[in-house]
Amino acid sequence: MLHYRVLNYTFKNLKEKNMTFEQVFDHIKNFIRIDPGGNYKLMIGTDSQVHKSQTTFITGIVIQNEGKGAWACLRKVKFPQKITNLHQKISYETSLSEDVFTMFTQERKDAMYEMVLPHIDRGASFTIEGHIDIGAGKRNKTNMFINEMVARIESYGAEPKIKPEAFVASSYANRYTK
């Protein structure tokens, strides 16, 4: 069932709406092709906002060539009720990011790596990060979920990032949850 759901996801950004994941992946490959000798980070993260009668979740996908720009898109999910349980909300955010990670199959990851690989000896790089909207501070209510959510992101072969480094979740996606 998850596979079927994944195939029907749509993404958008300021220039395009209703992009399939294949179109998103083509944009990412085309972005890397411009400068395959760059320092790339593929970052995925989800944030949410509780509204009066629903909870809005935004998952962002960002490909960044450090110091040289980025291309980004997002996916919006409206959950038809207020999610007030913090663990449930953080867990669902992480699940939505995990859904996107599953779309980056090994074959797709290899295709991106192979574009950058010939330039590694000249400083090129490619990493995949999972941005989680949680913080480690003692006063942060989400700090008790760090180990669980980090382990989930690591299971997809991604480098987990939490606040303040989790900007795809805490800044990019957050902007569109309002």
Rank of each mutant, 00 (worst) to 15 (best):
D99M: 15
V100A: 04
F101L: 10
T102G: 08
T102V: 14
M103A: 13
F104Q: 01
T105L: 01
K109T: 10
D110V: 12
A111W: 07
A111V: 06
A111K: 14
A111L: 13
M112N: 06
M112Y: 10
M112F: 14
Y113V: 13
Y113R: 14
Y113I: 12
E114K: 15
M115F: 05
M115I: 05
M115N: 06
V116N: 04
P118Y: 01
H119S: 09
H119R: 11
H119K: 12
I120Y: 15
R122T: 09
R122D: 12
G123C: 01
G123V: 00
A124W: 00
F126P: 07
T127H: 14
I128C: 10
G130H: 04
H131P: 01
I132D: 02
D133S: 01
G135T: 00
G135V: 01
G135C: 03
A136D: 12
G137M: 13
K138I: 08
R139G: 09
R139M: 11
R139C: 07
K141R: 14
K141P: 14
N143Y: 06
M144S: 11
M144C: 07
M144W: 06
I146L: 13
I146C: 12
I146E: 10
E148N: 11
E148L: 14
E148W: 11
E148I: 08
E148F: 10
M149K: 12
A151G: 13
A151N: 15
I153C: 07
I153H: 10
I153W: 02
I153P: 02
I153F: 08
E154I: 12
E154M: 14
Y156E: 00
Y156G: 04
Y156C: 07
G157A: 04
P160A: 02
P160E: 03
P160S: 01
K161M: 08
K161F: 05
I162M: 04
K163E: 06
K163G: 04
K163D: 08
E165D: 13
A166T: 00
F167P: 03
V168N: 01
V168I: 04
V168M: 01
A169D: 00
A169T: 00
S170D: 11
S170P: 08
